[in-house]
């Protein structure tokens, strides 16, 4: 491994260098979760950070139909007549960030008839089954490893995941608190500012700022502090996305999407105030990049979760500085 050479044994033990791998917004894509766990070994990272929006958005009913199963994928009906075909179909659904769920036609009708809140609760149950399997996979993959693996929910993740993270054997929660590794601290918050989607974890800017400050005040030396805030700072070039109309359709200006900054003013203000060593963000998939706000290196690796490849960033934390390298694995 040539990149950002680190002396062996320097991982999280207070030595002079820590290699941290950050990724975010995998949205229920199992292939990406597996790759995230593999990043520790392949990139020789001592610390893994998943920055939010871990769970998926879509459940695909895989419905019994006369001895076979049918499901809709990419707008097309798919039919699986054998166990192998069924496994392959479910694998494709998972690989695209969706949850396959075997049901019969009556169950589909029952769920379709549920109230919105009841259906959200049903969705969380379905999602949690997969998420807990993921956490078990992490325990297996990282069993004999000194790697620290932090997972934070993001604005899209239902609250049900918090308990699962806390119960996990080899994954550590970090949301809403300060954690320490290798002589560095990390301030984490998965909530976002308000979005047009009314997702599960959204706050007004004032409250968001108050919560960030409350955590950051306990973090100590900002020269050795990383912010892990799901939403990027406002108008930072890490938050540029297409503007939406009232129907949540992209607004086009001429022949291209109209672009706006959808980041958080609270996050920006907090970075300007505390000036941590680095600040890690996700949330806006299409606005990958690195920039500086004052002396703080701000990173958004973006997300290509549809492609089966995980967009991430390697950070080399050294006394007095930080280097970064975007990686798509």
């Amino acid at each position: 491994m040539r990149f950002l050479r680190v002396r062996r044994g320097n991982e999280a033990g207070g030595s002079d260098a820590v290699r941290l791998y950050y990724a975010s917004d995998i949205h229920g894509t199992e292939t990406l979760w597996r790759k995230f766990l593999a990043a520790a070994r392949v990139y020789e990272a001592g610390v893994l950070v998943m920055g939010g929006d871990v769970t998926g958005k879509v459940v695909v009913p895989v419905v019994e139909d006369g001895g076979a199963y049918v499901a809709e994928l990419f707008g097309q009906p798919e039919r699986a007549g054998t166990d192998e075909e069924l496994d392959a179909l479910e694998h494709r659904i998972r690989a695209n960030g969706m949850y396959p769920h075997r049901m019969n036609a009556a169950e589909v009708e029952r769920v379709a008839a549920l109230s919105e809140d009841a259906r959200e609760a049903w969705f969380a149950e379905v999602m949690l089954v997969t998420f807990e399997r993921w956490l078990a996979l992490a325990a297996e993959r990282l069993a004999d490893s000194p790697v620290r693996c932090f997972v934070m929910p993001g604005n899209d993740d239902p609250h049900a995941v918090d308990g699962a993270i806390e119960r996990a054997a080899r994954v550590e929660g970090c949301d809403g608190r300060v954690v320490e590794f290798g002589g560095y601290t990390m301030v984490s918050l998965g909530y976002s500012n308000r979005t047009p989607f009314a997702s599960p974890r959204e706050l007004d800017e004032d409250e968001l700022y108050r919560r960030i400050c409350a955590i950051a005040d306990a973090a100590g030396d900002m020269d050795r502090c990383i912010f892990n805030l799901h939403v990027p700072p406002l108008d930072s070039t890490l938050d540029t996305c297409a503007a939406l109309d009232e129907h949540l359709e992209v607004i086009m200006a001429g022949s291209e999407p109209k672009l706006i900054g959808a980041g958080s003013s609270a996050v920006r203000e907090a970075i300007e105030r505390y000036q941590p060593l680095a600040s890690l963000h996700g949330h806006i998939h299409e606005s990958a990049g690195a920039t500086r706000i004052g002396r703080t290196l701000c990173i958004n690796p973006g997300s290509d979760y549809h492609t089966g490849r995980i967009a991430g960033c390697l950070l080399q934390l050294r006394p007095g500085g930080v280097r970064h390298q975007f990686v798509t694995g």
């Binding site: 958005k57 049918v70 989607f197 599960p200 086009m252």
Partner: peptide
């Protein structure tokens, strides 16, 4: 085909026309 169930989350309909 049985369709999909989607939930409250960002980006689901951020589509270009």
């Amino acid at each position: 085909a049985p369709g999909l169930f989607t939930r409250r989350a960002t980006g689901l309909v951020r589509q270009g026309r």
